[in-house]
Design a protein around this nucleic acid. Structure first.
Lengths: 225, 225
DNA sequence: CATGGGTAAACTGTAGACAATAACCAATTC
DNA sequence: GAATTGGTTATTGTCTACAGTTTACCCATG
């Protein structure tokens, strides 16, 4: 290796636009999760293409990826429709999410690590601060970051990737009721950190399971609001 | 509804070709799982297209789906390469598989059902027969069918879909050593059926976990063969 | 002999054009 | 008047062509 003398991070990494399909994919996913594209809506390739300033091909590829990941339904010879979540499906997703997150918590507890725990505590503090400030977006972001960090500590890439997809969809269903669960959520996070710190796999699993189950309850009780 | 006088089943259902990308996808997946396309191999779109008698476009779409599902790695501006499984990844996949299958077993036990149990027993018998006949392919197929049936009984579509993908990849890694685990596997299946029949969720989970963990052991001990 | 530059080939990424298919609507017949 | 049939339109599925990048090889040069 040649000695360039340049530290890795210092290189500006001159912007690579990256494949168009990726950007289209992310743009569409953003539009779906923000409800700019509503469930059941018919997505016409040429419209999207024109709207995004690209050709139909990248749009097609993005739509197909969204299809395999469950965001849109691709009816043959008819086109793409934004997926309509059902009660049953939301419930099943929450079940799977509970499973994956609980396992991640167990693995994280098993391979406890000082630096990782510090990161968790920082994210937890950030979330608590956001809740006190009534910063909903900040709290949601901190929550996602917290769970992602637990996933990272688990050190299982396959698990992490699956959980990322499931979590994102759960959050999509769940966003409308997200504000209800603010303070209590972070108390539970503190408990989880404690369990991970002491390396108590059983307790970490139990706490995370209770945490996500609690989330499910909140979801199912949302009608009365 | 017009009375055509034609019974439903009698219509030959003249072959619906289905979207080309689907068929290309299945063809490529078959080629990969059978090792006709070996890990690390560079897949050139135009070659595949010519070989399959279609244009590049369906091949592209199939490759991208294979990419999102972890079968091929898609390096930008360079093309598709058959994914090379690592030890670590195989281990992580087995962990996730254990998780998903165990949960499926629990759910299946919770919603025990006479017809379902009968189906399981039949598949089990078929598998045992295949083992006695040294019919390896038949045994592998019966094994897959058995696990798929447990999944179906669990009644969780999301879980089922995830497990299907994970299982298929696990089986890809695992196929070379599949013959080692013949008879014992089906004894464990019998235990699982017993647990499901009595609706014992705890025991069903434990049995399935032991079963898949056993599979993992076998995998990791394969070098010495 | 090693090294650097430059050129060419191969492949992917994107765009545009054409064919096929399914829904929609009106006209027609029983 | 209802149902069926034929035409029409909009949209997807597929193919072909072209531009952009990366890689590898070869030749010139120190």
């Amino acid at each position: 290796m040649p000695a360039t003398g340049l530290p890795h991070g210092a290189v500006p990494k001159l912007e690579r636009p990256g494949p168009l399909r990726e950007r289209v994919y992310e743009a569409l996913l953003e539009l779906i999760t923000t409800r700019a594209l509503r469930p059941g809506q018919h997505l016409v390739e040429s419209e999207l293409a024109g709207h995004l300033g690209v050709s139909r091909q990248p749009v097609r590829e993005a739509l197909q990826r969204l299809n395999t990941e469950g965001w849109v339904d691709l009816r043959p010879a008819q086109g793409a429709f934004v997926h309509e979540p059902t009660e049953e499906e939301a419930d099943q997703l929450l079940t799977v999410r509970t499973l994956l997150e609980a396992e991640a918590a167990r693995l994280a507890a098993a391979s406890a690590d000082g630096a990782g725990i510090a990161a968790l505590e920082e994210l937890c503090a950030k979330g608590e601060r956001a809740v006190l400030d009534d910063d909903v977006d900040g709290a949601v972001a901190a929550n996602a970051a917290f769970h992602a960090e637990v996933m990272r500590l688990a050190g299982n890439a396959v698990l992490s990737e699956l959980a990322a997809q499931v979590d994102r969809r759960v959050r999509w269903y769940y966003t409308p009721v997200a504000r209800q669960r603010g303070k209590q959520s972070w108390i539970e996070h503190r408990e989880l950190i404690a369990a991970i710190t002491t390396g108590d796999e059983q307790r970490a699993t139990a706490v995370m399971r209770a945490h996500t189950e609690h989330t499910r309850r909140t979801y199912h009780e949302r009608e009365r609001s």
